[in-house]
């Protein structure tokens, strides 16, 4: 009797620990599905699975990564999505620090842009959301995990089931693409014009 009550306490403890991360899961769900209703279904389904498979969670391992992994698998199964890294057409080192180089070029030729280089960020606001949403799924998810949820490479590697090296290269490519996209928004708006 006492043992069973102890086990029940443990289950309750696990459940409340799992629920602490629901906001993170809901936010990633929103970005991955693109709409509120689907995100709610996805998160609900995820937590039903969490409940059903709570006994498979290894005590002492990373709960947040485990939850994201279930969310991701549920997403793939429900929406029959494939999360594959897009083939890169070409890439050169000059594209590193893409945004920085572009903005620096503009600043140097326009005296009206005063202040430190980071001030130009006032120009972007809502574009960030769109730029992330436009990324291919494989890139979008690593940006969400790393830049928004601030998970470590190791946690991300566990969630997406890839080695850490793959996580790194995918994340860096994702950021490069994100910077290009941000630059296009800035350019479209006309605040920053390439001379």
């Amino acid at each position: 009797m006492g043992e069973s009550a102890g086990r029940e306490d443990k289950t309750r403890e696990f459940e409340s620990a799992a629920l602490e991360h629901i906001d993170s899961l809901f936010n990633v769900g929103m970005r991955m599905t693109g709409n509120r209703e689907a995100a709610e279904d996805l998160v609900q389904e995820t937590y039903l699975k969490v409940h059903r498979f709570s006994h498979t969670f290894k005590e002492g391992s990373n709960l947040k990564a485990w939850l994201f992994k279930i969310l991701r698998n549920t997403f793939i199964n429900t929406f029959r999505k494939k999360i594959r890294e897009p083939k890169e057409i070409h890439y050169n080192d000059a594209e590193d620090l893409y945004l920085f180089n572009k903005i620096k070029t503009v600043k140097e030729s326009d005296d009206h842009l005063s202040g430190g280089i980071t001030n130009v960020y006032e120009f972007f606001e809502d574009e960030v959301t769109n730029a992330i949403n436009k990324l291919p799924l494989a890139f979008k998810e690593v940006v969400l995990y790393s830049d928004i949820e601030e998970l470590s490479y190791e946690e991300i590697s566990e969630i997406i089931g890839c080695p850490i090296g793959t996580v790194k290269s995918r994340l860096f490519r994702a950021r490069r693409l994100l910077q290009k996209s941000l630059w296009n928004y800035a350019n479209e708006r006309g605040y920053l014009k390439e001379k």
């Binding site: 906001d23 809901f26 972007f124 809502d126 960030v128 959301t129 992330i132 928004i148």
Partner: peptide, 9 residues
């Protein structure tokens, strides 16, 4: 910026 400008639901 990317983190801050991403709405948190």
């Amino acid at each position: 910026i990317i983190k801050d400008k991403t709405p948190h639901y």
